[in-house]
């Protein structure tokens, strides 16, 4: 099954990927492919846009129209693509620093506009490509090469930020929970407005080693043991939820999608 998926959605001549052994990104990339397969999308009409960082390399491996852009700017490029050709299915894969630090402004404004783009954030809580610096999602007190004495910044909750900014679908999946994460991505793509799916990844090489999290297997086990479904989380106190990974659809709301609204303007003012 997996090999058929690889044949259909991956550029086999550009594999193996460059990610470290044990990295969670490979699983997440497969989830994206599986979601597209489940939805039966036409590969020619799918545009995959990425920024810069470990996550961004996914674009090169996947057999869609792919655009590996500049650091943080994936959503800005994607906005141009979607505005110009709304019929294309535009998916962005970004990292945590990519999406919420240098690209934070683009994230909140894409959310505010409710443009029909699916934003998938591979969140490994660290800048991996540059060697392990702390990111906007590195947990408080944890270490990175630029936080040798522990991180004193509060981390972002990316789906919450996106929801507050106007994203009409937000969810969280994880590298461990592939089945559920695939469904969440699928739902995000199907959703008409701007959707954000944060996918908890793992970085055994930098985040894991810096913070003594053990092997990749240990880190996956952590995800397994600390994941809580949205439904279950509703019954828990904030103290009980401390340090847990809440998985599932986090929010959903209604607002007209941007390119559809613009089409109405064209229909109204176009000089025939």
């Amino acid at each position: 099954m997996a090999s058929n998926l690889v044949k259909k959605y991956f550029r086999e001549d550009h594999l193996p990927h460059i990610w470290c052994p044990g990295c969670g990104h490979g699983v997440l990339m497969k989830d994206v492919a599986q979601a597209v397969e489940n939805l039966g999308l036409d590969k020619d009409k799918v545009v995959l846009v990425s920024g810069i960082g470990c996550s961004s390399r996914a674009a090169g491996y996947m057999d869609f129209n792919t655009m590996h852009t500049t650091h943080g700017r994936a959503l800005a490029f994607a906005t141009g693509i979607k505005m110009a050709r709304p019929e294309l299915e535009v998916i962005c894969i970004m990292g945590d620093g990519d999406a919420s630090a240098i690209g934070g402004n683009h994230l909140i404004h894409a959310a505010r506009r409710n443009i029909g783009i699916t934003a998938i954030v591979f969140n490994n809580d660290i800048y991996g490509m540059t060697g392990g610096q702390y990111s906007p999602t590195t947990p408080y007190g944890e270490k990175g090469t630029t936080a040798p004495y522990g991180n004193i910044d509060r981390p972002f909750d990316i789906p919450k930020v996106a929801e507050a900014a106007g994203a009409t679908y937000t969810a969280r999946g994880s590298a461990y929970d592939a089945v559920r994460t695939t469904k969440l991505i699928e739902e995000g793509i199907r959703h008409k407005g701007f959707s954000v799916i944060e996918c908890a990844s793992i970085c055994p090489t930098y985040y894991g080693r810096k913070n003594k999290k053990g092997s990749a297997v240990d880190m996956f086990r952590w995800q397994k043991e600390n994941s809580v479904s949205v439904e279950k989380a509703k019954t828990m106190t904030p103290e009980e939820l401390e340090g847990k990974l809440v998985i599932g659809e986090l929010s959903r709301s209604e607002f007209p999608e941007l390119t559809e609204q613009y089409q109405k303007i064209i229909d109204k003012v176009q000089i025939k």
Binding site: T70, A76, F77, G80, I81, R85, H109
Partner: peptide, 16 residues
């Protein structure tokens, strides 16, 4: 939202 994004969006549209 800013000048950087404007440039990116124009390039994205052209790629499309």
């Amino acid at each position: 939202e800013d000048e950087i994004a404007s440039c990116a969006a124009a390039i994205g549209a052209s790629a499309a």
